[in-house]
Structure formats: structure tokens, C-alpha cells
Amino acid sequence: MDVVVLWYPLYGLSALTKALTAIVSVASAVMLWPLIPQALRLPSAEQLRHANEELQAEIAERRRVEEALRLRTAELSAANQELEAFAYAVSHDLRAPLRAMRGFSKILEDEFSAELQPEARECVEHIATAGRNMGELVDGLLVLSRVTRGELKREAVDLSQIAHRVRTELELSEPTRSVTWDIEPGLVMQGDSRMLESVMRNLLENAWKYTSSTAAPVIRVRASTHDNQRFISIEDNGAGFDMAYADQLFQPFRRLHRQDEFPGLGIGLATVLRIIRRHGGTLLADAAPDRGASFRFTLPEPELGAA
């Protein structure tokens, strides 16, 4: 009959499906068996609490470090302010007695010279000279305290342009000198324009000064690469100095030459170092007596997106 024909039994296929299912199930069970201990190892409430405590401790530690850092920053900025106030007071309060020393010795010289013995006149002269020197020192102190004061603005600064400007000024100040200049164009660095101008000015004025008794003086400004870092170097072939004294070079009012050799205050390089440090950069010196000096500095490139 037709009905019987329609229900065409597939016992064989059914049995096959069941057998397959059974095999896969057993295989799954076998494969899952090793996971049981892992499942049992899931953290207990006790373990979770412990982990939580550890996290809390770490957060507390971070807070403590942050607080310490904040305190340290506050301390540093207070110390900085104190130093500035000190330099301000020193430079200004020292000026009044200086003006008196210089003023009254000048009056003695100008108006009472005839009444003074030669020895007395010499004494007055010494007082006047010392007063003038001290005036320069006081002004130097003021320059030093002032140069790194204020906000540091980072912008693109064309050091080649500054070098040309300083060159022109130096040549105008001593037109009889003949110096060969070699300034690489397009030396641009990121930094505070006022401070970098002071860096270039100090280094170039030094190069100019210390080549004053050199036969064929050369001053060179160029970029160089050391340890994958781009440095700007200012080089001369002048008097140089003994590297044995290099550690004194950057200390304020320390000098490696006598006043009768090369006059100066000893604040130029101290100023340069302060500025480079404030930028987070590096300043290196290299020299030999009578073989010239080279100063090179690098400034960290600001990270993208950082102010």
C-alpha cells in the first residue's frame, strides 16, 4: 500500500547518527575531563578579597608617591623662589653701598685731588676700581638670576639667524678685527627664543673674545650628530683651555683665564648651562690650550602632542 511505501524506514541511518553522537559525546567528555580541576581552581571569595587588598595597597602606594612628588615639587619651587628673592635682594641692596663707595671716591678724586698725598690718591683709586669691579659682579648676579626666570616658551628658533645677528654686532664693536665666520644655515631648534638668544650670544661672544690673540681666527656654527642626537656646536680656534679645569667652567664667577689675559666676569657659561638644563638638554665642552674650544648642546625635541 501507498502509506507503507511513504513511511520508508531508515533504521540504519538512525542507528548511525546515534552511534556518531555517542562517539562525539564520549570524546567531548574525555576532552573536558582535564578542565575539571581548572574549573575547581577558580578564585574563591577569600582569594578575591586578597587580590582586592593587594590592589588597594598598590593604589595607596601610588597615592603616597604622588603626594611625595607633589611635596617635592612644592619644596623645589619654594626653594627656587627663595633663590630668586635672594638674588634680587643681593643685586639691589648691594647697589646702594656700591654707589656710595664709587660716588664718594669719585668726589675725592675730582674735588680734593690737590689736597691728597700721592699715596692717598692711589688708595682712592683702588677703592674706585674695586667699586667698579663689584658693580660688574652685582650686575652679573642679576643677569644670572634673571635669565632663567619666567615661563619657558617652546617655539621654533632659528639659531643661524641669531648667529648672524651676533656676528654683525661683534664686528661693529671691533671693526679692526678680521675673523672668518662659518655659519651653517637653517639651524632651527625648539626652545625659548629669549633664552636661546642668550645661549648663542654668550657662546659666540666667548669665541670672539678668546680668538682675539689668534693669528687666523675662525668661528664655526654647525650641526653635528653624536649618539643619534643632533647637536649644535660653536667652535673656535682660539686660546682654548685645559680640560683638567673643565669642571670649573660652568660655575658662576669661576674663570680659567686671568683678567689681564681675557677680561670677564665668569657668568656667561654658567648662564648657558642654566638655560640648557632648564630645557632638559645637554651641554658639552671640548678644548685644548691654544687649540681652540668647542661647545655643543642639544635640546630634547618636544613629543608630538605635548605642549
Partner: peptide, 9 residues
């Protein structure tokens, strides 16, 4: 500003 040099002052 008071100059340091008496002549200028």
C-alpha cells in the same frame, strides 16, 4: 633708575 657711576648719577 639710579646709576652706579657717580658722574651719571
Amino acid at each position: 633708575r639710579k646709576p652706579l657711576d657717580f658722574g651719571e648719577f
